[in-house]
């Protein structure tokens, strides 16, 4: 079974994966896929996604092969789809990250093995969404009805676009907070409202007083045509300890990481900061995803 986009999943399937991740995290479930091999094909840099998938595979008793674009036949001009066709003969499941949007869907089209999207350009990052939903459920007890402030570069961050959809699926309240010009694309807002009837408030300044979850992402500098514009946005959008003075008791701060300067470092030690925990949840959630992909 492929996992390419959060749009491909029904709510019950998301719940199934989250419940499975919960059991794995608590030690009640130990997936065993001995003899199976995961291939990781990352055409863009990654720390958490790649390593947590490799860790998850090993915890599921699987082997791992890692494709490195810089030392591969891509340098000789081999196409992306040919590369995928070769790798499917070496593994039982593939995780692919690529800067071009739709590339992982194309990989799944040419590959008989399950393909999991590790992020395709500014489009989708469905496994991050599952980790985010799991993190909200773990830290707040539920997703339904939570007021989640999505803060930062909502235009370019694939994690935010996937998450907005996932939150709407669970009837959470979404408050989209971004500098002017980096708003959640209107097409996404309209789609979410039409499909799930959920409310999305739009703001251009930070005010976390009514937030249950503050989900922050960095300015996606690499997706800006003008680096000076990216720099200006980075300086303008930073969360400081003072901004949290009037926040609700029990506020949780999440971030897909890496964070650059959008969260003041003194916040890291506050009890509200759960982003390192969130990154660690990547392993049980991705164990559950591999288990789901191989079991279907």
């Amino acid at each position: 079974m492929d996992l390419i986009s959060i749009r491909d999943l029904e709510k019950k399937e998301v719940e199934l994966i989250l419940d499975s991740a919960e059991k794995i995290h608590s030690g009640k479930k130990k997936p065993d896929h001995s003899g199976k091999i995961l291939a990781t094909l990352f055409f863009e840099p990654s720390t958490r996604t790649k390593l947590s998938f490799q860790s998850a595979a090993q915890r599921n008793k699987m082997g791992v092969v890692d494709f490195l674009p810089e030392t591969s036949s891509l340098k000789k001009g081999e196409s992306f789809t040919d590369t995928v066709r070769i790798l499917e003969g070496y593994a039982d499941v593939l995780v692919v990250r690529h800067p071009v949007e739709g590339s992982v869907r194309l990989a799944a089209d040419v590959c008989e093995r399950p393909v999991i999207n590790g992020g395709d350009g500014a489009n989708q990052h469905p496994t991050q969404t599952l980790i985010d939903l799991f993190s909200i459920r773990k830290t707040k007890g539920k997703i339904e009805g939570m007021n989640v402030h999505l803060v930062g570069d909502l235009k370019h961050a694939r994690a935010m676009r996937s998450l907005a959809y996932g939150l709407a699926m669970f009837n959470a309240k979404i408050t989209a907070v971004s500098p002017k010009g980096l708003e959640l694309p209107k097409a996404d807002v309209d789609e979410i409202k039409a499909k799930f009837g959920c409310s999305i408030a739009v703001r251009d300044t930070l005010d976390p007083r009514d937030a249950d979850v503050l989900y922050v992402c960095r300015i996606q500098e690499e997706r800006f045509a003008d680096p000076m514009e990216a720099k200006r946005m980075k300086e303008k959008f930073m969360i400081r300890k003072d901004d949290l003075k009037n926040a609700k008791h029990g506020l949780v701060i999440l971030h897909p990481l890496p964070k650059i300067n959008e969260i003041e470092s003194s916040i890291d030690s506050m009890p509200q900061a759960k982003y390192f925990e969130q990154a660690h949840y990547g392993v049980p959630v991705r164990q559950a995803i591999l288990d789901w992909a191989l079991s279907k």
Partner: peptide, 21 residues
């Protein structure tokens, strides 16, 4: 890359099967 383009109608607009735009 060479591939068969595909678009599905959603309301008055079309969604690209690949980039989902």
């Amino acid at each position: 890359e060479e591939c068969v383009r595909e678009f599905t109608k959603e309301g008055e607009r079309f969604r690209c099967h690949y980039c989902e735009r």
